[in-house]
Write a protein that binds this DNA or RNA. Sequence first.
DNA 1: TATGAATGAGAATTCATTCAT
DNA 2: GATGAATGAATTCTCATTCAT
Lengths: 193, 193, 193, 193
Amino acid sequence: MLTKAEINKIKKENSLYSAAYDLFTEKGINDTAINDIVKRAGVAKGTFYLYFKDKYDVLDKIILNKSTKVLRDGIKATKTKTFENFSQELLYFIDYIINFFEEEKLMLKLIHKNLSWAVYKKARKDYKEIDDLYLMFENEYKDTDMKKEDIEKLLFIIVDLVGSVSYSSIVLNEPASIDEMKVVLFDTIRKII
Amino acid sequence: MLTKAEINKIKKENSLYSAAYDLFTEKGINDTAINDIVKRAGVAKGTFYLYFKDKYDVLDKIILNKSTKVLRDGIKATKTKTFENFSQELLYFIDYIINFFEEEKLMLKLIHKNLSWAVYKKARKDYKEIDDLYLMFENEYKDTDMKKEDIEKLLFIIVDLVGSVSYSSIVLNEPASIDEMKVVLFDTIRKII
Amino acid sequence: MLTKAEINKIKKENSLYSAAYDLFTEKGINDTAINDIVKRAGVAKGTFYLYFKDKYDVLDKIILNKSTKVLRDGIKATKTKTFENFSQELLYFIDYIINFFEEEKLMLKLIHKNLSWAVYKKARKDYKEIDDLYLMFENEYKDTDMKKEDIEKLLFIIVDLVGSVSYSSIVLNEPASIDEMKVVLFDTIRKII
Amino acid sequence: MLTKAEINKIKKENSLYSAAYDLFTEKGINDTAINDIVKRAGVAKGTFYLYFKDKYDVLDKIILNKSTKVLRDGIKATKTKTFENFSQELLYFIDYIINFFEEEKLMLKLIHKNLSWAVYKKARKDYKEIDDLYLMFENEYKDTDMKKEDIEKLLFIIVDLVGSVSYSSIVLNEPASIDEMKVVLFDTIRKII
DNA sequence: TATGAATGAGAATTCATTCAT
DNA sequence: GATGAATGAATTCTCATTCAT
């Protein structure tokens, strides 16, 4: 059981997280000062440094948390459905992620510029269901002459492509809206896999 | 003919450009101060403001210059060769760009994080050969039932994919070296076009 | 007999003392925070204030303890030997102290900058053998026309001189190594007494 | 000729120097903040960093300036007098220095704790008259069998002794007032040289 | 006694921008 | 056009001290 003090500690940390997240998405990372974060969190300045090394430390942790959550939610949603084939299943999953980011434009903006393959790897290590997604993908190619490493590279390319195109179209509306881009993007992915 | 004063003016502007470029790539944009730039350029602080609005003003201009130059060089090199088909030609061009960035890792780092489709559009408007590249691509699909806008979207997807994968593999070495990634990347592009 | 609680109390105090001493000598007084001390001592922050007023309170106590110990050790070692005359005895004692500080360079650094005659006086009041050293020195001059107060001043001058020269040569290696300085220093002292 | 701007620049630097000196002697180094210095100097905070790296940078420069000045003044005053022998001359010089510090107790306090042989060496290199003092001292021993290095060591010992005793008696009044200590100190120096 | 989370004043440092020369 | 000293608001980070548990 948690003591009152422990509960309070967790509360403070959480309010720092969400204050930082809100400010990063609202004003951008460069324009957010530690001062802004603690003020919004309703916490003393020193408290920030009890939990984080600096601004980029919170950022890294937020990126990891948020992107892991999105992946897990997408996987969960996909698992509740049944599909005729793998292609359909993968596209459903991608569609889920894109729809999510359409709703959470600012999160996409924040995450994308700071995401790296290392984050995915960590997420895969920490959460069984994320690893399962990868294994499923790998399984799909087991009867081809594709090497294991190349399968991973292909997955990376798809992930990168979806991320990149989503970012441009959702955040910048370039070269077209995400709904218009989706048609071509899905078509492209179908060709790739 | 240029007067001595005019030549001096251009010299100053150029040294500001190259000082800024060097520092942005060496230390990153955030960690480069106007002070650093003028010091390296051997110019007074006030002089900076005679030529640029602020740090991001130089940055934008550098991005535009450098990326336009890369594109034009790639196109020029491609034009001197002959190819059996369009696929081969496009891949030669992409290969040229990737090889260039392998040599200029820091430039890739700088450009990628700050590039947008708007830059390509501007480059296409300003330089005939860049527009020609696009028209050639468009021409390739004229006999299919693909709409004109979708062709542009496809090109965007390819550009984005190449940029994204190059950045990860060249700058971060993730998920593999660019030489390893190239095999899968080129294979993917062949499937797409 | 001490209860477990009392033993634990003494243990905590001691670990605070030695943590503070280590840090003061390693990083200097200015750069040592209470936080550093309690962390190294393996004790909670609040505990520090149960035993000491502040950083300088520990420092004062450490200075007194360490310098008293050095004096007493030197006296003890000198007492086990026999000497032809007082001059030889005094120089043996001084040599002992210098050798000790050569081994404990950092302690010398810490003590010297913070030592005052007041500390010697306190040590003389608290420990009979230290007082004896003074009396022996005084006794040496009883047949001269030197006034009692002047004898004390002379002793002070010698102590100050030895401390000052040891500090420069051992800690700063200026103007020469302690081994080189010793020759001139001992010669000087012989002339003084 | 100096322009108005250059005169102003020197004025600012000087007001920073004297503000720092005043505060260091009044409140001590630890208790003086950069903020205090610039406020008293009537200058913006940033201006401090135009001239000094940090608090200890000003301190070092003050120490060097002030102690060089004292030495030069003492030498100048000594040169205007004639003496029967070297011993008298040296003691006159030492007396001058001690009297000066009696008037400038706080300067002594500041200088002493932060002075090192390195400062004397630098002063000797920069000012002919200070070097002359040393040469005169050396000359005094040219007919003895004393080695050149040992003469320097002897001088060091005297300097150190005078500095150390002055500090204790003037600043701390320990073990007696400077007037009382002088008798024994001068007697001691006469024995040494 | 002992703990350690929380505080918030305060210290150091940076830096874009101005402006008199 | 060019200079570079001066500014001071803004920002980061530290740390002694308190106090509820």
